[in-house]
């Protein structure tokens, strides 16, 4: 099993993600430079948070054209696990690997605090260690986290179980007061149709040890490890190529 953490110019949560895989999950992990154009040998790729390419033009817009994103697209099509966190989620949306877009927060302010998320789908490689409806306490830190998609797309996401996390109260109720950024239908994280690409605005890598105020994010990484133990995706990808 091998994780890769992509480093774009301007990534700043890459070390946190690397640390969690290496020191908390105790799994092999390597850096993946943004100019890399192939991902052979990796089983899971993390697109970390930060301000790739200075967030110029739009968040994630320039990163989308980097060589590594072509490789990430092929990797995802081959069944590899791809987790985009914060700026990583924005990049996945800009790349078209996930639907919708992340807009400026409704309140126009950068919001950095712990929020609560309700788990809406716990059958994914990213969530199988969580229980249905489990509420997680995980921090957000973003200016553009206001998820937007057309009503048709939102309906499709919901009917296919692709809304993975919603902003909620600590008790798991979904209401406007629990929505930190104006995201449509309180959406905090979604996945693609195949369920192997997930994007989320909150930072599970900042909440994987109780010393940091919450270890609730850890379940997401544990889920990925469990999924890879049973079916390493690099093997899946090789099967597809054969």
């Amino acid at each position: 099993m091998k994780f890769g953490v992509v480093v774009f110019p301007g990534s700043n949560c890459d070390h946190d993600a690397f640390y969690v895989i290496d020191r908390v999950m105790r799994q092999p992990v390597e850096w993946v430079w943004h100019e890399t154009d192939q991902l052979k040998g990796f089983d899971a790729i993390i697109l970390p948070g930060g301000f790739s390419y200075g967030d110029y033009l739009r968040t994630g817009a320039i990163a989308r054209f980097s060589p590594v994103m072509k490789a990430v697209r092929a990797f995802a099509e081959g069944g590899g696990l791809v987790l985009g966190i914060c700026n990583g989620f924005q990049i996945l949306c800009e790349s078209g690997l996930l639907p919708g877009a992340l807009m400026r927060n409704r309140g126009l302010k950068f919001v950095c605090r712990h929020v609560y998320l309700r788990t809406e789908n716990n059958a994914l490689p990213f969530t199988q260690r969580l229980s249905a409806g489990q509420v997680l306490k995980i921090p957000i830190a973003h200016m553009e986290g206001n998820y937007y998609a057309s009503a048709d797309t939102l309906d499709e996401l919901e009917s296919q179980g692709r809304v993975v996390f919603r902003y909620s109260t600590p008790e798991g109720a979904i209401d406007e007061a629990a929505n930190p950024n104006g995201a449509a239908r309180n959406i905090a994280g979604i996945c693609n149709r195949a369920g192997n690409v997930m994007g989320m605005m909150p930072h599970p890598e900042r909440a994987s040890e109780s010393l940091l105020g919450s270890a609730d994010g850890r379940g997401i990484f544990e889920s990925m490890v469990k999924a890879l133990v049973s079916a390493p995706s690099s093997r899946l990808a090789e099967t597809v190529h054969d």
């Binding site: 033009l57 739009r58 817009a61 054209f65 949306c93 800009e94 639907p99 919708g100 877009a101 807009m103 937007y148 998609a149 057309s150």
Partner: peptide
Amino acid sequence: EVLTNPVI
């Protein structure tokens, strides 16, 4: 292809 995000 570059300047616009057609979603929004």
